[in-house]
Structures are given as C-alpha cells and as structure tokens.
Nucleic acid binder design. Structure first.
Lengths: 230, 230
DNA sequence: AGATGTGAACCAATTCACAGCA
DNA sequence: TGCTGTGAATTGGTTCACATCT
C-alpha cells in the first residue's frame, strides 16, 4: 500500500502524505463546483474533506499560492491546479489484467474515465471470458476482453504505462513481470500478494481484506472497553 | 481512508501505522506457514513484507515479546498472536450493501471468510437483483440478495456490527445512516463520497480512483524528469 | 554466537499561532 | 476585517545501535 521507493531519493517536493490527500480534495472540489460553489475557504474545504484546516492549507501550500487572503480559494481554479499536479489533465491509458468481478468493477468504474484514465485493454487467462465486451467508463464505450497471451501486444497498441492487476494472488507476480517487460512503469495490485519490481517501477498494493481487518481491530477494542467514546 | 477519531483520545496502545501493517505480516506469515517454514527471523519476515527489520521488530514489540533471542519467531505462534490482536480469532458478521460488480467481488472474495469475516447479508435497491444467490466465501456457501428495505432486519438477524457500502456515491450517506441506526458500528465505504457518522462509529474510506491518481502523480514525475532512478 | 527488544537520536508530519496581504 | 500561507513548536514514526537473553 505504498509506492516502492527505490535506490536514491527522487527529492520529491511534495510529501507522499499530501499526494495521497490531493485526490480527496479534488473530488470534494468537483462536487462543490457542480453544486455551484464558486469560492471556498480552507475551513469549509477541510471540513468537507475530513481534515483540519491547518493541514489543508499546509498541503495546498506545497502546490503554490493559489488562494486569496481574506477570501479563500476559487473552486474551479483550485480544481485545475490540483488536477495538473496529479497529472489528471493528461490522458493515461490503462490495461486491466484479470476480468473477474473485481476487474469488471474496475473497468466500468465511472471515476476512472472522468479523471483521465482510459481503459485501453482488458486481459484474462480464461478462454471463456475472452471476446466478452465490457463497458469501460461512463460514456459506454465497450472494450473486448483479450487473451492474456496478447498482453504484450495490448500494452504496446494502447501505449499503456499503467497496469492494474486483479488476478488471483498466484498469478500476480508473473503478470507483473510481463507488464513491466512490456513497458508498464506503474502498477496497481489488487491481488493479495506482495509483488516485486525493478527500480523505477512504482507499485501500489491494495488489499481489500486489510481494510476490514483494521476495522475489526478497532471494533474489538470497543467491545473490550465498554466505556467507549461517548 | 482513516478511522474517524472522535472526541477523546482512546489512548491506544498500538499506533495506527502499526495496526495497518499487521494484516500484511499476518498474510505473509500464513504463506510461510503453508510453505512449511516453522521459524522466521525479523530480517526474513521484514524482507517478505516489504519493510525494514527494525520497523518490523518495533511493530511486533507493541504486541508483546513473542520472539526468541538468537532464534527468531515461531511462525504459527506469531500468526496466532497477530490474529488475536487484530480480532481475527473471533467471528465478524458483515453485511454488504450494493451488489454490483464490486459488491459481488467483495462477497466472494476468499480473503474474507478465511479471516473470520462472515457475510450474513447482501442488500441491493434494484428489484432485479433481489433474490439472486451469490456465493459468499471460498467454501461456496450462497447468500441471497435481499431488498434494501430489509436492511434493519438483515442487520439484526445477522447481528452484524460491520457494514460494507458498495453503492453509488449518491446513496452512500443514506445507507450509512440506516446501518448506524440498525446497530452497525464499523463501516467500510467504497463509494466515492465522504460519509459522516456519530462518534463511536469508525469509517474507512477506500476510493479505487484515488490509488490510480497517486500512481499517475508519480508516473508524471518520471516523464517530467527523464533522468529517473536508474 | 546470534537475533530480539528497546532506549536514544533522528526525521517527518501535524498543529499552533500569527505575520502578511486582499 | 478575515483568511491565507508559513515559521516555530509539538507530536508521532522511523532508524540506529546495542544491551539482553536464549
């Protein structure tokens, strides 16, 4: 669940914790914009994002001075600046490997297409699934599932630099190796297995069970100590 | 993506960052145990978990002294201690609301059942989906999708304290409110919307698009600076 | 001998509080 | 006046290095 930082420190200007929060601010700002809110204070945006205003201001200060003292932030302008910083203003071709339920969910998850992520390839090892048309993105463009054997071709044709692994754990490392060899340099891994990559290739691990386990830990605490927060 | 800590500090003995890593250690240890590894050093376990050995030892020291100096950790004993700390040795009834692709993926995700999470209810607002039988867990027990109208009954019948929201963003807060009113005290929210809960109810937000955006940020950096980590 | 467990030192992140500007 | 942007203080997490124990 963290980017594998390798060899030397790339001397990042923006702390990782801040980068991890920018997508939240971005999403909240989009909602505010749609609701017709043209300007927002750090206090308001922070409350809507679930953080303190000091933290929000410190985060935004890493991007530049985009607010107006005494007033707040222009909603649309801030949306654009965050999007630019995150790289959402450009087009990111993505391939998804493993088109089970999770792969399907990811393929037609609306949040992707609207943020510059374009599904250019769906791959599966099961011949029964190859050829299936899957709606990818909210605008209903359909993408055909292709055989895992075509992985290298699909990555090359789509010029994908981001790969999503939604296979069983046992297949994850092999799929990862092939993606990397094909030119993918960022991988989002949903398989419950740690995968290793060469330097220069980022990996984020997301384990759905992990999140439940963290909840269970806190839940257990509540029952052990009946005098919980009132 | 963080537990909403409320009112007073519950003076937790174990840091949140450590709790977040325990599921990883647990999973790696399970794999080692299955591979017949009876004992493991902090160096080995750390490498397999993607952390430093010092961090691993510090993390484990919060649970107690379960290692043997000069030797290492007994694999199965450590698995048990971590499981106990996380609350995985007890049974956690879970209800899942929103049985689209993601809800399906969560319902029959193998990692849940094997860690003490038992799917006792599936709920959906779409009448077309109500009545469908969904395999929940690896042992093939099937659970019938029920109407969202039965939410309160399902929570009560199953005695669920954990709820998973996999609905569209627009429905998330209303579903959350009903879950909380029905007695749920921990919520895992996959809908891309921040939800608020009364004190004492934990929420973890997981936004699949957020992870991709963090990758895009780092990917962009690579292209901006052609002299990437070698 | 060899690896754990842990104080001490270090580093990063959050919070505080206010100077500076619209 | 009111809110941003930011140094300073604080809190929390990681790394170091070694005393401790099998």
């Amino acid at each position: 669940m963290s980017v594998s930082r390798t060899t030397d420190t790339p001397r990042r200007l923006i702390p990782d914790v801040t980068v991890a929060r920018l997508p939240i601010y971005h999403r909240v700002l989009l909602q505010l914009s749609e609701a017709g809110v043209a300007s927002v204070s750090s206090e308001e945006l922070a409350a809507a994002s679930g953080v303190t205003s000091a933290k929000l201001r410190k985060d935004l200060s890493h991007l530049g001075s985009y607010g107006t003292r005494g007033v707040g932030y222009d909603t649309d302008y801030l949306i654009y600046q965050i999007a630019r910083e995150l790289g959402l203003t450009q087009d990111w071709p993505v391939v998804i490997v493993g088109i089970g339920n999770l792969g399907h969910a990811l393929a037609n998850y609306g949040g992707f297409a609207s943020r510059g992520f374009r599904v250019v390839g769906l791959l599966d090892a099961d011949p029964a699934r190859v050829g299936e048309k899957v709606l990818a993105g909210p605008n209903g463009e359909s993408v055909e599932v292709r055989s895992i054997d075509d992985l290298e071709d699909v990555v090359a044709e789509g010029d994908a630099s981001i790969g999503v692994i939604a296979t069983p754990a046992s297949a994850a490392q092999a799929v990862c190796d092939r993606l990397v060899a094909a030119g993918v340099t960022s991988i989002l891994n949903f398989a419950p297995a740690l995968i290793t990559t060469p330097a220069g290739v980022d990996v984020r691990e997301v384990d759905l069970a992990t999140e439940l386990q963290i909840l269970a830990f806190h839940e257990q605490r509540k029952h052990l100590r009946p005098e919980v927060p009132a």
